[in-house]
Amino acid sequence: MIVNQFLVLAALLFSIGIYGVLVRRNAVLVLLSVELMLTAVNINLVAFGAFLQDELLAGQVFALFVIAVAAAEVGIGLAIVVLIFRNRSSANIDELNLLKW
């Protein structure tokens, strides 16, 4: 196993996530794509951790932190989506421009 195979796979996964974030209209789907990107980051972290043989296991520890923060992000994100849906009966983020000038 070489380290690069994991890194390239993660890069591919990350790019697919970017595509999803840019293309999807439904907010839930955008959040799903963000999860793909975070998973790619986790694969990178763990792969580097294994590659560097880190005594402090920083790679895995931070992968765990990313998972925790991602869980928080999904919770808040979906709460916001639900709130928006309640107000506008739509979860399409391209119909939202409340932050406009």
Partner: peptide, 17 residues
């Protein structure tokens, strides 16, 4: 310049990437 602030999240994402 204010017209660049469209309020659309995905346009910001475009700019970011």
């Amino acid at each position: 310049l204010r017209y660049t602030t469209t309020g659309r999240v995905q346009q910001y994402a475009w700019a970011l990437f």
